[in-house]
């Protein structure tokens, strides 16, 4: 059982290239997955702990927009000085577990774990984020929508690390928002969550809108028909009325202990309308 904790990114990537390793960041998905029904075998696995890789830390503003390092914690997202564009991501960050989880859980871990209920994914979809994946001698950028493939499935190859998330600067004044529905106040897995960004054109109309819904399909989904329906509309309270059930066709909710499919579908519409209403106010 090996446990590597490199401080150099290239060392880390070389180690990953050499053999399969379990990546460990903040550990908030890793450890809970290792509590068996009645046993907790000390997992027989080789681990690469990436927490000491400083290039993966922090949020920076770049020429094109922003770069969020994969190791950025949810608390760092909450405390960062960021424009209103990021309000949805910040609200989501406040809803990831409790303060202990926010202090340790990372943005990269949330995207790589890729739970259908991952609260980080809808806001980052609504920010049109791209993920940066690096392997020894290689680097690529993939739109988040193409990265998360399904329930705990991503496009990450075994030798790659997710190193950062990139968000382009919007052309217009933009605002983000996020709404989460759960059966209790704190520490709750989402039944449904909705994130959105609306860019306001100089004419006071929707220059562009991006809306994403989570926990209603194997991977969170953008709603392109709704986004098109919103584009060009004037930003006022009645904007929410534009959302029609047909716009939600991409969703394929399931029944589980938290809610049934019909409820999820309906709640997604309700929450989305409320979110648009808030963004338009």
């Amino acid at each position: 059982m090996a446990y590597l904790r490199p401080t150099d990114l290239d060392d880390a990537l070389r180690a990953l290239a050499a053999r399969p390793l379990v990546v460990l960041a903040g550990g908030t998905d890793h450890y809970p997955a290792r509590v068996g029904p009645w046993s907790k075998p000390p997992a027989d696995e080789d681990i690469i702990d990436i927490s000491a890789l400083s290039p993966l830390r922090g949020i920076d503003e770049t020429g094109q927009g922003w770069r969020i390092g994969a190791l950025t914690t949810w608390t760092e997202v909450i405390e960062a000085r960021l424009p209103k564009l990021f309000d949805g991501l910040k609200l989501a960050a406040r809803e990831v577990g409790g303060a202990q989880i926010q202090n340790r859980g990372t943005v990269g871990g949330n995207l790589c774990n890729a739970s259908p209920a991952a609260d980080g994914i809808p806001p980052l979809l609504s920010l049109d984020a791209e993920v940066e994946l690096r392997a020894a001698g290689r680097s690529r950028r993939v739109p988040l929508a193409d990265y998360v493939l399904g329930n705990r499935r991503t496009a990450r190859r075994a030798d790659e690390l997710l190193t950062a998330v990139h968000i382009a600067r919007p052309r217009h004044e933009a605002r983000g928002d996020f709404l989460k529905l759960g059966a209790r106040r704190y520490l709750v897995i989402s039944i449904v969550m909705v994130a959105g960004v609306i860019e306001r054109g100089p004419d006071g109309r929707v220059a562009s809108a991006r809306i994403a819904v989570g926990a209603c399909s194997a991977a969170a989904r953008r709603l392109p028909l709704l986004e098109q329906a919103l584009a060009g509309q004037s930003i006022e309270a009645r904007l929410a009325d534009r959302a029609a059930p047909a716009h939600f066709a991409p969703l394929a909710p399931i029944d589980d202990v938290r809610g049934d499919a019909a409820y999820r579908r309906e709640a997604a519409v309700t929450l989305t309308r409320r979110l648009i209403g808030r963004l338009a106010s």
């Binding site: 908030t28 450890y31 303060a99 202990q100 989880i101 340790r104």
Partner: peptide, 9 residues
């Protein structure tokens, strides 16, 4: 900062 020690390696 508060953390859950059960998930800290």
């Amino acid at each position: 900062r508060q953390v859950c020690a059960c998930m800290v390696p």
